[in-house]
């Protein structure tokens, strides 16, 4: 049995979000699935609803529409009947050739990964601060730990998320709220499949989700899998003059 009774997963139609939603639902948690593609969400909800006590609820939403967030958040909480766990698992990572600059694509990354996250997590944090319980999970990335040659804006968006979540954690901890920053390495999802080359230490979305749910017992930063923690420690400490010369 899950300790969670009610959860919202933003970005539940695929990848880590979908895996988290599936595991939460199968553990008896009532889940709200939020994404653009409701056809996909409905398939997941039907599948889960046949086994779980409660069929997950489905909500159509594009995180680019930040103005819709407050109203939708209130509606979801009401329809769920409560909220313990809020997961923001939406993110885009356009695969661009090295050395290419594409401002339109980069701004879209910022809109989705940054503005979308802020719009939702602000709502969740405001609510949890008032209700003095709840856990927020944000899916960052190891890519946020260092400014690397490839995908500068994606990496920066994840670095933003980490600092932002840390601030939210420090702001809400005194009200009993937990904030978990998840930093996965490569996870086998549609997002990474776009890269088209083998990735190091690739894990399945299911394994990632299981690790993330275990991490919600505490708050703080969690690397998924844990081996990324020492690896990223080393990478964070590579001197700048070396970083300029290597391709990682």
């Amino acid at each position: 049995m899950s300790k969670w009774r009610f959860a919202i997963v933003i970005g539940a139609s695929s990848g880590i979000g979908e895996a988290l939603a599936r595991q939460l639902s199968s553990q008896g948690c009532k889940v709200a699935l939020v994404a653009r593609r409701t056809d996909k969400l409905n398939v997941i909800a039907d599948e889960l609803g046949s086994a779980a006590k409660d069929r997950p609820l489905v909500f159509e939403h594009d995180v680019l529409n930040t103005a819709d967030v407050p109203g939708l958040f209130e509606k979801i909480c009401k329809d769920l009947g409560g909220l313990d766990l809020f997961i923001f698992s939406t993110g885009v990572m356009p695969v661009l050739p090295d050395d290419m600059y594409d401002t339109a694509s980069d701004l879209n990354v910022i809109e989705t990964n940054v503005a979308g996250a802020v719009a939702w997590i602000n709502e969740a944090a405001d609510r949890f601060q008032k209700t003095r319980f709840g856990t927020i999970v944000g899916i960052g990335s190891v890519a946020g730990d260092r400014g690397r040659r490839g995908m500068p804006v994606y990496g920066a968006s994840k670095a933003f998320l980490e600092t932002y979540l840390e601030a939210i954690r420090n702001r809400t901890a005194r009200y009993g709220v937990k904030v978990v920053t998840v930093k996965p390495g490569p996870v086998d999802t549609p997002m990474t499949q776009g890269i088209g080359r083998p990735l190091p230490m690739l894990i399945s979305a299911n394994d990632a989700a299981a690790t993330i749910l275990r991490a919600t017992e505490n708050d703080g930063v969690v690397y998924v899998p844990w081996q990324w923690k020492p690896i990223m420690w080393i990478i964070r400490h590579i001197p700048s003059f070396v970083m300029k010369r290597i391709n990682i």
Binding site: L83, R127, K130, T131, F133
Partner: peptide, 20 residues
């Protein structure tokens, strides 16, 4: 009226159950 300004934690006297 249904904004977080009025949202509160409401607890049972036994403190084991609570709701928003």
């Amino acid at each position: 009226l249904l904004s977080s300004s009025y949202l509160e934690r409401v607890e049972s006297w036994g403190m084991s159950i609570y709701a928003a």
